[in-house]
Design a protein around this nucleic acid. Sequence first.
DNA 1: TTGATTAATAGACTGCAGTCTACTAAATGC
DNA 2: GCATTTAGTAGACTGCAGTCTATTAATCAA
Lengths: 198, 198
Amino acid sequence: MQSHDEKGTGMTEKTPGRPRDAAVSRKLKDTALRLVRDKGYDTVPISAIIAEAGVSRQSLYNRWSTKAELVLDAFYDDSFTRVAQPLPRPDHRGALATFLADIFAHLAENGAALRSLIAAAQADETFRVAFHDRFVAPREEIVTQLLHEAQAAGELPPGRDPELLSAFVHGAFWYRLLNGQTLDDTWARRIADGVFGP
Amino acid sequence: MQSHDEKGTGMTEKTPGRPRDAAVSRKLKDTALRLVRDKGYDTVPISAIIAEAGVSRQSLYNRWSTKAELVLDAFYDDSFTRVAQPLPRPDHRGALATFLADIFAHLAENGAALRSLIAAAQADETFRVAFHDRFVAPREEIVTQLLHEAQAAGELPPGRDPELLSAFVHGAFWYRLLNGQTLDDTWARRIADGVFGP
DNA sequence: TTGATTAATAGACTGCAGTCTACTAAATGC
DNA sequence: GCATTTAGTAGACTGCAGTCTATTAATCAA
């Protein structure tokens, strides 16, 4: 196996051989993030990323096995999933709308990359699982959790199905994103209203 | 421009030059359909399709500008959208469940290809529009229509939002498909119940 | 028959992601 | 020091989608 700790935990685990250069990882992620945001996932070749980062091809593939893994890491580092703040409690319908509006607001910057990563996941099961575990599942969990709480608080009728409704919410999000349709505050509210009823 | 009618309408429009050979188109679509079903979209190279079809590369690209366009055509010819039958009227909830169960049943055969086409649409706006117009929009329309009728029949409360609910339905479908999760009769029923309420 | 036009074929070519090879560099343990 | 191990660089290589060029074949109009 490899060492590859690279100060991930702070305690470098005393592996033999030359240690990984954390600066190389940083440069790759920063460059990938910038180039993909600026020019788009499919327009930016690996050769451009390593050239701008000033790093060899093999150094990239020592760390990530595909372009998609690198880009996921790059965006993950930046923000992407740190939307997972605790949500305001009193009004669950409003909390859901706010949560969605927050995600949708980030789509201006990250939406195109997100679409590319979802696409990449369809051709690469390993990446699909990684993407699901790191990006999809946590967000789904937040909504499911919120809906369970809303149900406990009596704001959502007991007959409703939080897991299904969470699939409705994220499904509508994905469906509109992947079909190139708008997603804004209005849609956040509309989705929340659709879940909680009129 | 080209002639490219190829008996599409029956009335060959008297274009100059050598006419397209309909047998070439047939062989390409049949071969593409079979190979993609058997081996998967990403596993089947163009070179294999033209080799098995016994046709030149250029003949393919004279008809379709990308692999995705060919495969969409191949699956479209076979079935794929002919699920658009008129639906039973008395029970709209049951009609929706049946409609979905029908789609889900076809996923065993076509689900992998559908995922690949959705993925391809994310990197190719021209194809995304074609795919949307030919595949996505008609199905969405069916559900929206059904929900409007259900609302008129009093089976769906007047406060509900058919366009949004349709996005919920197809969204949940896409979301689960793209995340590699099961879609069967149980889910069809569950989604229909989620739309119409408990 | 000839010319114009488009289709079909064969195969070279480009740009891409990802792999592989050869070599050099930095760390550890003796 | 020296051996071992892993990271780094440079660059060749493979397989892919899609483009391009050259040549031949089929149709229509004159």
